[in-house]
């Protein structure tokens, strides 16, 4: 069996808007990646536990609820504590540019806002892991 890129796609918090997460999950699958989809309403602890158990290369979070400044830093912190420093963290949602910059300083990778092309997301992950 060959090495595959494994991506955790998660919906943290209470937000149920999963259209984006699912469309991205399908696109990553069609690009040959293995997507572990956790479903909705995940706590940061659940997300990081899944990332550990699944040995993923990427943790991708979709946040449309405005809670991104709470969720991304918390997940990032837990990832570091669990030894997942080398795992790429990315995601998307309703996130203003100013917040994207702040999160980037915490080690969060690129964040995609509404309208982002799927191929950019796929290419970004491939490039970041190569």
């Amino acid at each position: 069996m060959d090495k595959k890129i494994r991506v955790l796609v998660a919906k943290p918090g209470l937000d149920g808007h999963d259209r984006g997460a699912k469309v991205v999950a399908c696109a990553l699958r069609d690009a040959g990646m293995e997507v572990i989809y956790t479903g909705l309403h995940q706590t940061p602890e659940m997300i990081v536990q899944a990332a550990v158990e699944e040995d993923v290369d990427v943790v991708a979070l979709s946040v449309l609820s405005g809670a991104h400044m709470t969720i991304f830093p918390k997940v990032r912190k837990l990832m570091k504590a669990q030894g997942l420093k080398d795992v790429l963290m990315t995601g998307g949602g309703i996130i203003p540019e100013e917040d994207i910059k702040k999160l980037s300083k915490l080690g969060v990778g690129r964040l995609f806002t509404p309208g982002a092309p799927l191929k950019d997301i796929v290419e970004y992950i491939r490039a970041a892991l190569s």
């Binding site: 595959k4 999950a25 399908c26 990553l28 699958r29 069609d30 690009a31 040959g32 990646m33 293995e34 997507v35 572990i36 989809y37 956790t38 479903g39 706590t43 602890e45 659940m46 536990q49 899944a50 158990e53 699944e54």
Partner: peptide
């Protein structure tokens, strides 16, 4: 395409975060 979406974890969250369980 050789990819996959693995969604079984969605249904396996009753016990939450637990060191006595390992799901892959």
């Amino acid at each position: 395409c050789g990819g996959a979406i693995l969604g079984d974890r969605i249904r396996m969250q009753k016990i939450g975060v637990d060191n006595g369980v390992f799901i892959r």
